[in-house]
Nucleic acid binder design. Sequence first.
RNA 1: GGGCCGUUAGCUCAGUUGGCAGAGCACCGGACUUUUAAUCCGGGUGUCGUGGGUUCGACCCCCACACGGCCCA
Length: 513
Amino acid sequence: MADREDTLLTNRAAKLERIRAKGIDPYPARFSRTCDTATATAMFEANEGDDGSQDKVQDVLLAGRITSMRTMGKAAFLDLQDASGVIQALLRLNNLGDGFDLIKDLDLGDHLGVRGNLMRTRTGQVTIDAVELTVTAKGMRPLPEKWHGLRDVETRYRQRYLDLIANQDEIMPVFVLRSKVISGIRRFLDDRGFLEVDTPILVPVAAGAHAKPFDTHHNALDQKLYLRIATELYLKRLIIGGFDKVYEIGRVFRNEGIDQDHNPEFTLLESYEAYADYIQVMDMVEQMVATIAIAVNGSAQVTIGENVIDFTPPWQRVSMREELEKRSGIDLESYDDEALRRRAAKLGIDTKVLESRGRLIDKLLSTFVEPHLIQPTFVLDYPEEMSPLAKAKPDSPGYVERFEAFACGMEIANSYSELNDPVVQRERFEGQEQIRALYEDEEVDRQDEDFLTAMEYGMPPTGGLGVGIDRLVMLLAGQRSIRDVLLFPQMRTLKGESAEAEPEEEPENEATE
RNA sequence: GGGCCGUUAGCUCAGUUGGCAGAGCACCGGACUUUUAAUCCGGGUGUCGUGGGUUCGACCCCCACACGGCCCA
């Protein structure tokens, strides 16, 4: 540990002891505020007469963290920050008497309660003129610097609380927006008669998507379990069971890489509506996103970099095949697997690892098509082999009724007319297993026997939807990285930080005295 | 997985053809009863990410590693 830090901590500890020596509890159990700081300011302004008479808001109790201190001998100005904002407190020897001494033992970062009267200073700032101070929690560590805030991204993610304290104005609104997006989705779906449900996170089969699961073990059952990679198959079981419209907003887990738009756990909305198809889901998605954009930003338009993204329906709808041909010159129908691979390689796609046709098409799309989809766009009708849970498109052999929605080059939604023929579903799962056998390292969907049994009891025609909430929040909040819309993004555990992290054998040096 | 960049005081950052480690804020001491990046006077508090190497001498050059970021896959 650095000596300097020791000194800073020692200073704080000494102040803590002095506070205690005065008979003050530096960590009292409670402090009753009259209101938060923003409300206090609004209250004062509302009661303020035109003539500046300002004696109507007296004897209020406010509290916050000290983020700035300007001491001037026998008076001091402090800034008290709470979730609603900041209010200035004026501490004067005249008003506080012996209590004024406490200033010497206050630090930036301490939580302080102030009783006093609201007033305006000479410079016009609404301020609480303190008559009594209460230490509500002494801070024992120095805060990041007040002017530049906390900029080190690693520290911001690892110690998000410091980021929130130091960069409150910058980042708190992002997470408030995130919360509004989620509550807005709930309201939107609830209003349309959807039922919110909870399905298992610990599952015996990690099915419903092409992704590598986290695995774990249940001791009492002595059974391997996985963390879910999707909620799809359980929600479909509920449609089979007779619920008409269900949705779940839940965390799913994919044991894959971490980058600007991937975190190993992320929040997924899935909804299923009996007797709907993907066209109806499309209508719902554009309505939902526009509604939420307006709810959180007051506008269906969002400025991201140089682009103004307009979520106002209707969104552009393009055929996957046509769009790919337009952007890359490749008409999928003219190429068998091998020819497609050669053509892709010629266009600069890395084809060193042998990949399935579906995976190859996926790469072509993400290289040639997706980056161009800036305005909200539905891409329709994907190859069957990429979509084992989607219903075949009539009159288009090899294709399924599926759309993905993109904005700003990023996928935000995925939807199918759901496959409900159990025989075909079994064939599709088997097709996935063949892909797995042929192409090593390729993630495919897994066969879920229990789900097939469920489908054999009869699943009505259904429109399904998945929306990556984190990415939607990124768009609506104008954030580049998924880490900036996650309060606690996944980080590698630092050495020595967790005893659980590396259960390395340590030589036992006990039994000597 | 590959490439590039970063890691220096509590925080934000300088720095050196390789020669005693710097600033602002914070902090410590002093002055100051309407300040607001308060001001004024005095004080630098450091394992320069970690471990090796080269060198008379390394924060700087070399190698490896750790963590993070960006780009690519």
